[in-house]
Amino acid sequence: MRWELSEEQADYRTVLGEWLGERCDAETLRAWLDAGDHATFEDRFVGEGWFAVGSSEELGGEGGGLIELAITAEELGRRAAPSSAWLGSMLALPALAAAPEAAKALLADGTTTVLACSADAIVGPAAGVTLAEDGLSGRIPTVLGAGRARRLVVPASSEHGTSLVLLDVDQDGVEIRDRPLTDRSRVASDVLLDRAQGTVLGGDASEALADAALRSAVLVAADGLGVMERMLDMTVEYAGQRHQFGVPIGSFQAVKHAAAEMLVKVEAARSLVFLAAAMVEAGRQEAPLHAAAAKAQVTAAASAAADSALTLHGAIGYTWEHELQIFYKRAKLDAPLFGSPAAWNERLADSLDLVGGPTEP
């Protein structure tokens, strides 16, 4: 099955792609990454209205839903655009449903509010942060976009269970330690809390975190789809330019087969991602299965496609000067980001009713 976007969604994808092509071309992106500058792009992304697409108009967003967010993630991945703060903010929105004023502030001016969950695992209740009378204390490793955040939504455990706490970063008791990543297009930090003060959000914390986990699966898978598409385009272009034995290497059957396999991965990934986005957005009972399948299968496929692209580029693909290395590293990070394919496959298996073997009479 091939997923087809609506005409309006396809137009949005085209317009966003053109905007990114102008604002985040390869030379500009490389300059940002060399300087460690993520703010320039992210501020422009907010200032020109893209940040609020895919969020409720009631909260000050531009409308749309998870499908539009998946389109955004796909196009950001296709350009390897700095977008850690955007993703962290989109994961925080389910928690902010109980704090509409904070959600409106986030969507209106891009006041970055990031979900403070470790990017090394599937989003869930925090294991290392406790909420007591004197505030929040603990450590959360590898929080995506925390270095760009003004506020954090922190899952914390207390005697009453799991709570979500909204706190300002600029206060005593909050320390943000940057953590370098091999993928320079993303940023992450460790968050250390020592009696930090915040506001406990209402609503069901477990439900909000479960929603954020499914959103993370869909959006990271969509990013992997975009990265995979870009690597396929680069590989096909290079195979038509690089000559051996007097002919383009793209004429060799082995190269054709490898490129065709990448194309099959891309087309299968597109259907997985957008079907999962639609299921999660609609709140369907089978949504967790689709989200798990998308995260596990698409990011694993993107990682494998990155290896194929590198092999087909040969020695030039290993060089710092060639842009393939940027997308290779992004694809490799997408696989473990917010849960590895193995972790999501386990969750998928746990959700299925497995049929046992024949029983003895």
Score class of each variant (00 low, 15 high):
249 I>N: 11
247 V>T: 14
234 M>D: 13
189 S>P: 05
240 G>E: 09
298 V>P: 02
207 E>Y: 03
244 Q>C: 11
276 A>R: 07
283 G>D: 09
189 S>F: 05
286 E>P: 09
295 K>I: 04
274 F>Q: 08
300 A>T: 04
266 V>C: 12
269 A>T: 00
214 L>Y: 03
211 D>T: 14
294 A>T: 01
298 V>C: 08
257 H>A: 15
242 R>V: 13
203 G>T: 01
300 A>F: 05
276 A>Y: 01
303 S>L: 09
200 V>S: 00
259 A>I: 15
223 D>K: 13
249 I>V: 15
294 A>H: 06
261 E>H: 14
189 S>H: 08
237 E>F: 13
273 V>P: 00
196 A>T: 00
280 V>N: 09
304 A>V: 06
220 V>W: 03
216 S>W: 02
190 D>L: 05
271 S>D: 15
191 V>W: 00
197 Q>R: 01
238 Y>E: 13
211 D>P: 00
259 A>W: 02
196 A>L: 01
283 G>E: 05
259 A>M: 15
258 A>I: 07
220 V>K: 05
290 H>Q: 10
201 L>M: 04
218 V>R: 09
212 A>K: 04
196 A>P: 02
261 E>K: 14
206 S>E: 14
281 E>L: 04
193 L>R: 00
234 M>S: 12
192 L>I: 13
259 A>S: 13
194 D>N: 10
210 A>Q: 08
224 G>R: 06
245 F>G: 12
242 R>L: 11
239 A>V: 09
231 M>T: 12
248 P>T: 02
274 F>G: 04
286 E>S: 12
276 A>W: 05
261 E>V: 10
